[in-house]
């Protein structure tokens, strides 16, 4: 940290919190290598276990929350975080849509617990994995599994300036076309979730010739009754489609509804 930054005592206080997740999204912050020193000058990293064991106390100006709520202790902790944070930003597919672990929402969590742990009675867990917004008001959700580094910096820079971050909610198709990637659906018949998936990744997968698998969750304008027959046309069966929708953003309401449509065999357009 430079002398100039050290002189500043009024820097906004940043906290990074972990719930059920792989930690990849919060580690994205440490991946911002070129910008880390500047960031450290602009904010006081007050609570970030992955970066430092020196823990400050609240309140915090900006809390980045990684992971989903899966235990009774989580439920209490997320409420506490909300109480001590001016702005709460849920980061990543777990925090915004329950993550992979939300598969338990459609099964018997007690059965999983018994199958996985030698002493299941030591495990205290909820029957569901839910996004942060299911428990407390969230000021912003940043999508992705993992989140995009550039978008994370944009969120922080926008917060520091007091402006709205630029996080388009349109489909991945917009990013593919702007990038100049030839459509893998039209030119190759590759199944691709791009038309219903939230932008933000820069259309990474189609740029390498594979279809989007929806890791940024639903776009702001999904049309699943129209879209699902396309996936079938391009070679996916019901199981493939359900697996694709129930991976990273399992508990996203639009994906849940689409799975319902698919499993009910209701592909009528409307």
């Amino acid at each position: 940290m430079t002398a100039r930054a050290a002189e500043r005592t009024d820097r906004p206080r940043l906290a990074v919190w972990k719930f059920a997740s792989c930690d990849g999204c919060q580690l994205t912050l440490l991946d911002c290598e070129d910008d880390l020193l500047t960031l450290a000058e602009q904010v006081e990293v007050s609570y970030f276990l992955e970066a430092s064991s020196a823990l400050g106390t609240g309140p915090y100006d900006l809390s980045l929350v990684d992971g989903s709520v899966t235990t009774p202790e989580d439920e209490a902790r997320v409420r506490h975080i909300r109480e001590v944070s001016r702005h709460v930003v849920a980061i990543g597919a777990c925090a915004t849509a329950g993550g992979i672990q939300a598969l338990r929402n459609y099964a018997d969590a007690a059965e999983f617990r018994a199958a996985v742990y030698a002493r299941p009675e030591y495990i205290e867990t909820l029957a569901t994995s839910t996004p942060i917004s299911a428990h407390v008001p969230v000021d912003l959700e940043l999508r992705g599994c993992p989140i995009d580094r550039g978008q994370l910096l944009e969120v922080i820079a926008a917060h520091l300036t007091g402006r709205k971050p630029d996080l388009p909610g349109h489909s991945v198709c917009f990013e593919c076309k702007r990038r100049g990637t030839t459509c893998v659906v039209v030119a190759r018949g590759t199944p691709c979730l791009g038309p219903v998936t939230h932008a933000g990744c820069g259309a990474l997968c189609p740029a390498y010739g594979r279809g989007c698998y929806g890791c940024f969750g639903p776009s702001n304008s999904t049309r699943f009754p129209t879209f699902l027959p396309l996936l079938r046309r391009d070679g996916m069966d019901t199981l493939d489609i359900v697996r694709e929708l129930r991976t990273f953003n399992t508990a996203a309401p639009e994906f849940e509804e689409a799975v319902g449509l698919q499993e009910a065999g209701r592909e009528d357009r409307g």
Binding site: F174, K177, G194, R269
Partner: peptide, 11 residues
């Protein structure tokens, strides 16, 4: 009923 609103046509 056939439109995905994906924006490809405009791009």
């Amino acid at each position: 009923a056939r439109c995905l609103t994906c924006g490809n046509c405009t791009m």
